[in-house]
Design a protein around this nucleic acid. Structure first.
Length: 341
DNA sequence: CCGGAGAGGCGTCAGTCCGT
DNA sequence: ACGGACTGACGCCTCTCCGG
């Protein structure tokens, strides 16, 4: 792909390139569909303004036609134009006493969420999963309320490429991607009965280690958390198995919270009487808020990366379409010139 | 080997958006 | 109006790469 083509594409289609910094973030990250300039992307049937493109990874992407008057480009949405216009206005109004950071914050804060933007993209490209649908399935895996052991079967795809399934019986299955799916199958079973301490939970690990089934123990006070238990366990499991499949030692970490051990999130309101309890309640609320925000930030970053990947895919498709149109134009020119001669 | 640069992730804060 | 969700910005940390 030559620079000329990229430039012409931008001129013709008003396509913004992915920001340099963000694009750089995606380099050298395994499992991410970064499209290199030399990648082969084939464009198949084109009808009614839609094209089907085959990306190098085998992924097929539907794309709107390049030349469509009514198409609102997500890459350069009206909102982004507003940002650009406002940015230009920044320079002229700098003397008015309002700081740049305040203005920039004001402008950027009105940006539509990545969920919206990506869903708009998804409507154009059915190959891109809608975030709402994804999160719906994830929500099912983390029921609210005091954690009950009967949960619907949920499937998670970890950042390490592993699949984690929570069955209705409370069993967590960890499996690797297809190439070594059988070998990598690991099972976690959670039981409450017969626990060494009342309310405690045993997590049984039936992996491929030569020792066979192993267990580790979670104190009840860390387990009885409103709806967060599965989330905590999920990340616990991730961190336990992410580094090594052999699991030589249980490195039990709790990356999702800085809560002191033993903090019970399901404290019942209405029993506060002393100032100390008021303070404890405030602290508890703050910890809960921080934990939620922590998870929200993670999710937001994940969506942002997905959004950028989506944009990259779209850019690749548009580049191919642009190339095809240029070739078609040249062909038509040749035909016309041969006829006139 | 060591230190600096850059990338990337995380936690937190602050502000906005949006559904109820 | 309110509370939860969302996200940009900031600071910090870790890791990798590269030059000295």
């Amino acid at each position: 792909m030559t620079m000329e083509m990229v430039e012409s594409q931008q001129d013709d289609n008003a396509v913004d390139t992915v920001p340099e910094q963000d694009a750089g973030h995606l380099k050298n990250q395994p499992g991410q569909s970064h499209i290199s300039p030399g990648s082969e992307v084939s464009v198949a049937a084109s009808s009614a303004g839609r094209s089907l493109a085959q990306l190098p990874s085998g992924q097929t992407v539907h794309a709107q036609g390049v030349i469509q008057a009514t198409q609102h480009s997500v890459i350069q949405s009206p909102h982004m134009q507003a940002v650009q216009a406002a940015s230009a206005a920044d320079e002229s109004t700098e003397s008015e006493g309002v700081t740049d950071s305040q203005k920039r914050r004001e402008i950027l804060s009105r940006r539509p969420s990545y969920r919206k933007i990506l869903n708009e993209l998804s409507s154009d490209a059915p190959a891109v999963p809608r975030i709402e649908e994804e999160e719906k399935s994830e929500d099912e895996g983390a029921p609210s309320g005091i954690s009950a052991m009967t949960v619907p079967t949920s499937l998670y795809h970890s950042s390490t490429g592993q699949y984690i399934t929570i069955t209705q019986g409370g069993t967590i299955q960890i499996s690797n991607p297809p190439p070594d799916a059988v070998h990598g199958l690991q099972t976690l079973a959670m039981t409450n009965s017969g626990a060494p301490q009342p309310g405690a939970t045993i997590v049984q690990y039936a992996g491929q280690s030569p020792d066979g089934t192993q267990q580790f123990f979670l104190p009840g006070s860390q387990v009885v958390v409103q709806g967060i238990f599965y989330c905590l366990l999920f990340f616990l499991v991730l961190f336990c198995f992410a580094a090594t499949g052999d699991m030589p030692g249980y490195q039990i970490r709790n990356p999702t919270t800085n809560l002191p051990q033993g903090v019970v999130m399901a404290a019942s309101p209405g029993t506060i009487c002393s100032p100390q309890q008021v303070a404890e309640e405030a602290t508890r609320k703050r910890e809960l808020r921080l934990m939620k925000n922590r998870e929200a930030a993670k999710e937001c970053r994940r969506r942002k990366k997905e959004y950028i990947r989506c944009l990259e895919s779209r850019v690749a498709v548009l580049e191919i379409q642009n190339k095809k149109l240029i070739e078609e134009l040249e062909t038509l020119k040749d035909i016309c010139s041969s006829k006139t001669d």
